[in-house]
Design a protein around this nucleic acid. Structure first.
Lengths: 349, 349
DNA sequence: ACCATAATTTGGAGCGCTCCAAGAATTTTG
DNA sequence: CAAAATTCTTGGAGCGCTCCAAATTATGGT
């Protein structure tokens, strides 16, 4: 690999002049410039190596996106929510002329990834692991954490998940539902875990603020209707796991309404319902969470607790890019009623 | 920002030892290690700066994805096709522990982006601009170009677009269709451009191999049924432009079948059909291209010319990562018949 | 011609790190 | 207990570049 110095030698000029030819050509006399360019071509020199510039300037011109939980980037890209988040971030990056780096952080390499990522700042997906934040802080780069409570010194953006969850339950109880099933989020790899009422050690606190808050909202909403969450089956499942539908219908046949924590989970239920000839919302109502574009395209279109996911991603990127004093943003959620919820009509089977 | 040297001074050891503490802790005596770690903590040193290591090692551990055409990354993320491509690439990156950098290349900054991206290789979206390839070659990094003919010295992956287009037309003519509309891809920003038969300067060669090839396939397929593409209206439109549906139905009311170059275009047509009460496939058949996941979820599900988009993205990343001798891969396409195509039943209006 | 002024070009000084050969300290061996 | 072997630590040599003050060369006015 030829370097600036090599080209300089070949053209009989100094390193600095070659640098100028490439970066500020107006500074160098046209004929000389041409001679240098010729030398560069002859040597197959394709321009100053970014590595050198980088060390000198110290700017990567990139921000990193780190997946939430223990997910890999590919899993983020699969999920409707993740895609909109990344889309939003890329929108802001497009505007700023910055690169968006999708940083892979598998469980154990997560901290190392943060330490070594070639970025000027981070968007961190939510995490139960406080160490992540410490890691990010150590790096002394601007960062924002999504869907986590991280205190006043740290940039964070979250939605009002509790209100959203309450609104979801209210909507359903107002329609007359009394028998529910709840889909919470499984944070480790594996099949759905069914927690029936009365069973010990129900996952009422998963450790992830996102999940806990929504579960708490469900609890509150149920309480308002004189129902107890303790009587409601909870199924922990990875969003997108296609097997959850079967698990739900097999284990919670009496439910007339399914509360979820993501549109993707709700969509999975819809798919299984079609397979079994169960009508939505005739036999069972399903409510999503997040209000992704996908939720509007399903059959029937999903009722969901929506927020501006793209806007969230975009704001996150902007906060990192702008590097202003830390702030904590809480985004509003909105119940969007579509066609997947209705008054209960008949029991399944 | 403290450096290795600073920490070394504070701990009374050398730069090298501090480096070892962080990178090969087993090489340094536990008590010394602790002293160094304490000093690092005290100084708020969060580990060796990746910039330095980078210059030294020369590896970014990242590959860059550059959007096709003149699109920005955000546009890629919006498109079903683009998302699956990125998903595929991220899958390979996950496996390899590499970062995927979404490199922004707006028209004029495109070449500069290639010159300066902090990556070890590139996935280039297709382009009509040969300069892109030259740029990439100059950088002397492994790269692969998608959906372009770039000769035997260059990694490329493309689908057999011609056969796909022929198959699409055949499917429709076999169903009895004789009146078509074609959606080709507009490569500049702006609203749909309608090219009616007989008009001069129809975009039969857009300069993009991808478009040209498919158009050529449509032509061939039509010819097989004794139809001429010269009699078929062609509408150039950016995939995803929601206005194209109206343009199509207003300008080509006699068409009983719409050929497209992407699922997204087809989906847009579907949306407008719903709005106008036009039945698909009753009044008009619509056929997509690419076979993205979205195409299976529409109402009605789209008939489409499918290929393994995720696999393509994954293979692309692998080729860059593996850096083997250049090869040219042509991926098979497959006609997937779903419910958006049927025999023509009635004329619209 | 000659000097002031303007236009170009130069090369040193890092940017922060890792590698590595060599030196220092410690432990083992005969 | 000295010599040999082993374990640790050190600091020089870059990695390739950009910035900048200083040196060199060209231009212009008298």
């Amino acid at each position: 690999m030829p370097t600036l110095a090599d080209v300089g030698k070949a053209a009989g000029v100094s390193r600095g002049t070659v640098s100028n030819v490439f970066n500020r050509p107006e500074l160098v006399r046209p004929e000389l410039r041409e001679r240098v360019e010729a030398a560069a071509r002859a040597l197959g020199f394709g321009g100053p190596d970014p590595k050198g510039r980088l060390l000198r300037d110290g700017k990567f011109n990139a921000i990193g996106f780190m997946p939430p939980g223990a997910y890999a980037i590919a899993e983020v890209m699969r999920s409707p929510y993740g895609r909109e988040l990344v889309l939003g971030a890329s929108l802001a990056c497009d505007e700023a002329g910055t690169t968006l780096s999708l940083v892979n952080g598998t469980d154990n390499t997560r901290f190392a990834s943060i330490r070594e990522a070639l970025v000027d700042g981070f968007i961190l997906g939510h995490s139960a692991d406080i160490g992540l934040i410490t890691s990010a802080q150590r790096r002394r780069l601007p960062f924002v954490i999504l869907e986590s409570d991280a205190g006043p010194d740290i940039n964070s953006i979250k939605i009002d998940g509790r209100s959203g969850a309450v609104a979801a339950v209210r909507h359903l109880t107002e329609l007359g539902h009394r028998h529910f099933g709840i889909l919470s989020i499984r944070r480790t790899p594996g099949p759905p875990i069914v927690h029936m009422p009365g069973q010990a050690k129900r996952p009422l606190l998963a450790g992830f603020p996102l999940d806990d808050e929504r579960l708490d909202g469900f609890k509150q909403g149920l309480a308002e209707a004189n129902l107890s969450i303790d009587d409601v089956p909870i199924i922990e499942t990875t969003p997108g796991d296609p097997s959850v539908g079967a698990v739900v219908f097999d284990n919670v046949p009496e439910a007339t309404a399914i509360l979820t924590m993501s549109d993707w989970q709700a969509i999975t239920i819809l798919d299984e319902a079609v397979r079994r000839g169960i009508e939505v919302p005739g036999h069972v109502s399903v409510i999503g969470f997040d209000g992704t574009a996908e939720s509007a395209r399903t059959t029937p279109p999903l009722t969901t607790i929506a927020h501006d996911v793209i806007g969230k991603g975009r704001l996150a990127a902007r906060m990192v890019l702008d590097n202003e004093p830390p702030r904590q943003v809480v985004l509003a959620v909105e119940l969007v009623v579509r066609a997947s919820t209705a008054a209960p009509r008949a029991k399944i089977r």
